[in-house]
Structures are given as structure tokens and as C-alpha cells.
């Protein structure tokens, strides 16, 4: 009851009983929050990359990739008694963290360094769509890191960032 459960990088946890799931310092990574509002069960997955490259990765590191994490989260929730039709999603992250300073021609967005955040957003949305999960809200993109608190009591996501007001979606 009211415990805080930490989800690390490439990890996924399910919670209920008004526990809060938390994952820290999302950069290009995305925190995927799935919630069954009837059963009040929530799952938080912290993915790093959009797509698993092969079957091995898909099996051994399923929570690292958007395309393998989402179905696994759904299966876990169903296993705990959720009805897939009651599950909704909220996501946060996928930032492009690094910038070129003092550059007249600021091509940071096109650099090698800032691709994955945007790709992750696309991949997560694709996966949610593929499995028929509605995306209710998002706090994604831009250039700042996010810590996400997911309250399984009401399904609200609280997003904390440096130098910004707390955002609740």
C-alpha cells in the first residue's frame, strides 16, 4: 500500500494497491505507463531502443525495446486479471539531450547524436497502436530529462524535470 517501486533502465514492473511506480532520469529513453482503471493495476516499462534486432534480443532483453516491451507489459497485466480493453497508455521521454552551443547553424537535431529519442517515440506509438492500446497523454520530445511517477491509485503520471514545473498528465 503506497509503496514506491523503482523501475530501472531496460526494466519493467507491474503494481497495484495504490503503489507508485517510478523511473528516473529518462533522456532518449521512454517510460511507458499502462493502466487498467477498473482493476487499478499499472505497468511501467523503461525502454532504451525502438526495435529488437533479432529473436535472441527479443527474448533476453524484451524490456529494452519498445516493440517487445509493450506486448509483454500487456501480457503481464492480463495475467493479473486485467481486461485488455480497459488498458490505456501514457508515455514520457524520447528527448534529444545534446546541443551544439555557439553554433550558427544548429544542426543538433540532425546529428548522429540525437536520433534515438524521436525513433523511440515513433516505435512506442506504433507498438501501442498494433496492440490496440489507446494513448491518452504524453510528455515527450524536446530537450530535457524526465523522472516519472506513476500512481496506480488513479493512473496519474507526475513528471519532474530540472528547471521546469512539475507536469501531471
Amino acid at each position: 500500500m503506497n509503496n514506491t517501486i523503482t523501475v530501472n533502465i531496460s526494466d519493467m514492473k507491474v503494481a497495484q494497491n495504490s503503489d507508485t511506480l517510478v523511473t528516473y532520469a529518462l533522456g532518449s529513453c521512454i517510460g511507458i505507463c499502462l493502466y487498467d482503471q477498473i482493476k487499478k493495476i499499472g505497468a511501467l516499462g523503461h525502454i532504451m531502443l525502438p526495435y529488437a534486432h533479432n529473436d535472441e534480443e527479443a527474448k533476453k532483453k524484451k524490456h529494452r525495446f519498445a516493440d517487445t516491451c509493450v506486448p509483454d507489459m500487456i501480457n503481464e497485466m492480463i495475467r493479473l486479471g486485467c481486461n485488455k480493453r480497459s488498458i490505456v497508455a501514457k508515455i514520457a521521454g524520447g528527448a534529444t539531450m545534446f546541443k551544439l552551443v555557439n553554433s550558427r547553424n544548429n544542426n543538433s537535431a540532425n546529428s548522429d547524436l540525437n536520433k534515438i529519442g524521436a525513433q523511440n517515440i515513433v516505435a512506442v506509438k506504433e507498438a501501442l497502436k498494433e496492440y490496440g492500446i489507446i494513448l491518452l497523454a504524453e510528455d515527450t520530445g524536446s530537450d530535457y530529462a524526465r523522472t516519472v511517477f506513476f500512481d496506480t491509485d488513479d493512473g496519474k503520471i507526475t513528471i519532474k524535470s530540472c528547471n521546469r514545473q512539475t507536469n501531471i498528465i
Binding site: A25, G27, C29, M48, M97, D112, L113, A145, C162
Partner: peptide
Amino acid sequence: YVCIDMLGAVLSSVAVEL
């Protein structure tokens, strides 16, 4: 390239991007 933000996000983004 410069970033002023949370250490975890910096490191994970470097790991993931590069």
C-alpha cells in the same frame, strides 16, 4: 555537444545514441 540536466539521462542517452 553540451547538455545540462540529470546525470542518468546524460549517460543513458550517450549509451543509447552512440
